[in-house]
């Protein structure tokens, strides 16, 4: 004689538990590993570097795209107007010490162009300049 064991079908809630576990783990990962920040208005490929200095918030951020367009704090500026624009912004900030300028140059941009922007910034006579980079262990944006 064979006895058939009848098993109660699992409730729908019990079936959801593994899914919830996975979702909770993903939530914990994004909360711990990520940092909430405003997305940069200009999308470009940041050069990869081993530099360990954390990116500081800067009152003036200059982005230079691969096709050589220059954006100062998200506003398109012509190369000829860059020096005046930066000088005006520096006066508006009115900081007693020179502000640091963050230069976000596209990794594929010719270094000569990056150096030309540095030359233009030197003419303004203000601030120190830092190049924005991505750490080697970071993911490509």
């Amino acid at each position: 004689m064979t006895v058939e064991l009848r098993q109660n079908p699992p409730s729908s809630d019990t079936q959801l538990i593994p899914l919830i576990n996975v979702v909770f783990l993903m939530l914990a990962f994004f909360m711990i590993a990520g940092q909430i920040q405003r997305p940069d208005s200009v999308v470009l490929e940041t050069p990869i570097s081993e530099s360990e200095s954390d990116r500081q918030s800067s009152p003036i951020t200059i982005a230079v795209t691969k096709d050589e367009r220059i954006f100062v704090n998200g506003t398109l500026v012509l190369q000829e107007e860059l020096v005046n624009h930066i000088s005006e912004m520096s006066d508006e900030i009115g900081s007693p010490s020179s502000p640091t300028i963050l230069l976000r140059a596209d990794a594929r941009l010719a270094a000569v162009r990056t150096r030309a922007i540095l030359g233009a910034l030197r003419e303004t006579g203000i601030g120190e300049v830092s190049l924005a980079t991505l750490h080697t262990s970071g993911f490509r944006e």
Binding site: I20, V23, F24, M26, L27, F30, M31, A33, G34, Q35, I36, Q37, T46, S49, S51, E52, S53, D54, R55, Q56, L102, L103, L118, L121, R122, E128, V129, S130, L131, A132, T133, L134, H135, S137, G138, F139, R140, E141
Partner: peptide, 26 residues
């Protein structure tokens, strides 16, 4: 939890952003 997950996935950045100081050579 799904809504929270969606929020964090869309707003967080995992890339470590750094900076490299460059001086004025002249």
């Amino acid at each position: 939890v799904f809504i929270l997950l969606l929020f964090f996935m869309l707003t967080t950045s995992i890339a470590k952003e750094k900076q490299l100081p460059v001086g004025y050579s002249t």
